[in-house]
Design a protein around this nucleic acid. Structure first.
Lengths: 121, 121
DNA sequence: CATTTAACTTGCATTTTGCAAGTGATGGTG
DNA sequence: CACCATCACTTGCAAAATGCAAGTTAAATG
């Protein structure tokens, strides 16, 4: 499959932190990655059932973008969409460290503002 | 800003990753933290001069929010705003690990899409 | 072959963002 | 002390992103 050279992202600068946020700096993308890290694979409707309740148009949009960026992919790329789950690519799996760091920070620093926050392991 | 008085954030769930994104899940907040990690302190106009060119209303909004959350503070809280820089609190400094993980991920995984990306280490 | 259901799309209201142009206080200079 | 450039914002408005509800399409199921 030929991959387009053109990037779907407008990079604000050459800083890797800035570029990471150009891709993942929104409220939903990393939650999709989180679901895939904790469950291995997820279908469209499984994503919809997560407690944060992403709306279907945003979900479709983010799945497309994360696929285009090579962060996620269909489990079976040849099969039809129905019941065909998504999974992380190597690049997507590498985000585990980012999510762990973020989860630890939240749990350690936001418990006074958000007492119901739950520990991750 | 349409946010409540007690906690300025509406928490989507009790998951710490989700809650971290409720606070920091946008394109600008972590760039403000990055500037403070690399420079120690920054004034309003110094933030404006960063290569990503944040607009002044967004900057003012984020500085207020990060201050309300105890992530940043004025260097001298009693002094007037003019030339009074911001700095990270303990909680803000703890975000270094999140930024390092994100920067490493970007540098390792986005160089094919974004060849001009620069190393942080 | 009719029905159900998963995976989207579409339309529209609301919210957030981005841009340009102010405003008012302050601190340095003559 | 008066002037004036600069800093730290604010305001107004256009554009984009988000959120919500209601479709639509096609594959499985009975």
């Amino acid at each position: 499959m030929a991959r387009s050279k053109e990037s779907p992202i407008e990079w604000r600068s050459e800083c890797p932190i800035s570029s990471g946020l150009d891709i993942l700096g929104d409220k939903w993308s990393l939650l999709i990655v989180r679901d895939l890290i904790t469950h291995g694979t997820r279908t469209y409707s499984e994503f919809s059932e997560s407690p944060e309740k992403i709306s279907t148009n945003i979900l479709a949009d983010r799945l497309k973008l994360l696929t285009a960026l090579g962060i996620i992919e269909r489990v079976d790329a040849e099969r039809s969409a129905r019941n065909n789950a998504f999974q992380l690519t190597k690049s997507g799996k590498d985000l585990r460290k980012v999510l762990e760091a973020l989860g630890r920070w939240s749990y350690a620093n936001m418990r006074d503002l958000h007492p119901d926050i739950v520990s991750i392991d």
